[in-house]
């Protein structure tokens, strides 16, 4: 069997989507053939430890463009999900193969958006919708309900944008889609 370079040992199919999220491909492999491959559980555990070191970037330290984007997605949250708050943040990479765009903290019900995602509204809104759907559903990545809510929430936001609900944020010249 050809083992992909980004393989990890599958210990539980439940983790498949989560580890793919981290840039790894779970494979069924006997431990004696696994060599130095890590398990999916190890990867996730390491990822969680890294993510716990997230640092919130205070609003005052954001650029006008980042602040404009953050204001918009906070309003989107207020109208659609009501997570406790959305913070700009320096989020550690979730694994050595990916960078982290955003994060939802189950324990504090906050959404953290990477500051580089705030440079463009399209990235930030998409990230926001993804994370708010975690809050709405309580489900993890790849779970059907989570994906359903992403779709329905995106549809709602399209309607709201078309109605002009966010115009006051969009007219800010600092905002870039």
């Amino acid at each position: 069997m050809d083992i992909p370079t980004n393989a990890c040992i599958r210990t539980d199919p439940r983790w498949d989507k989560a580890v793919r999220h981290l840039g790894y491909e779970p494979v069924d492999i006997l431990p004696e053939n696994a060599g130095s491959l890590r398990t999916d559980a190890d990867l996730i555990s390491e990822s969680q430890e890294k993510l716990a070191r997230v640092k919130i970037v205070p609003d005052a330290q954001l650029t006008p463009r980042q602040m404009a984007t953050l204001s918009l997605i906070r309003e989107i949250n207020h109208r659609n999900a009501r997570v406790r708050d959305i913070h700009a943040a320096e989020i550690p990479p979730a694994s050595d193969r990916v960078r982290t765009a955003g994060m939802y903290g189950r324990h504090d019900q906050n959404v953290y958006i990477s500051t580089d995602q705030l440079e463009a509204g399209s990235q930030a809104v998409s990230t926001c919708i993804h994370e708010m759907s975690h809050h709405q559903t309580g489900k993890g990545d790849g779970e059907e309900r989570h994906e359903e809510v992403i779709g329905s929430m995106a549809a709602a936001i399209v309607d709201q944008v078309s109605r002009g609900d966010y115009d006051q944020y969009l007219k800010n010249p600092e905002f870039v889609w």
């Binding site: 989560a18 999220h21 840039g23 996730i44 990822s47 969680q48 993510l51 716990a52 997230v54 989020i91 979730a94 990916v98 960078r99 982290t100 765009a101 955003g102 994060m103 939802y104 903290g105 189950r106 324990h107 995602q117 990235q123 990230t127 993804h130 994370e131 975690h134 993890g140 990545d141």
Partner: peptide
């Protein structure tokens, strides 16, 4: 997971 990260 305690944290639900998403990559770009």
């Amino acid at each position: 997971l305690k944290y639900e990260p998403v990559t770009a």
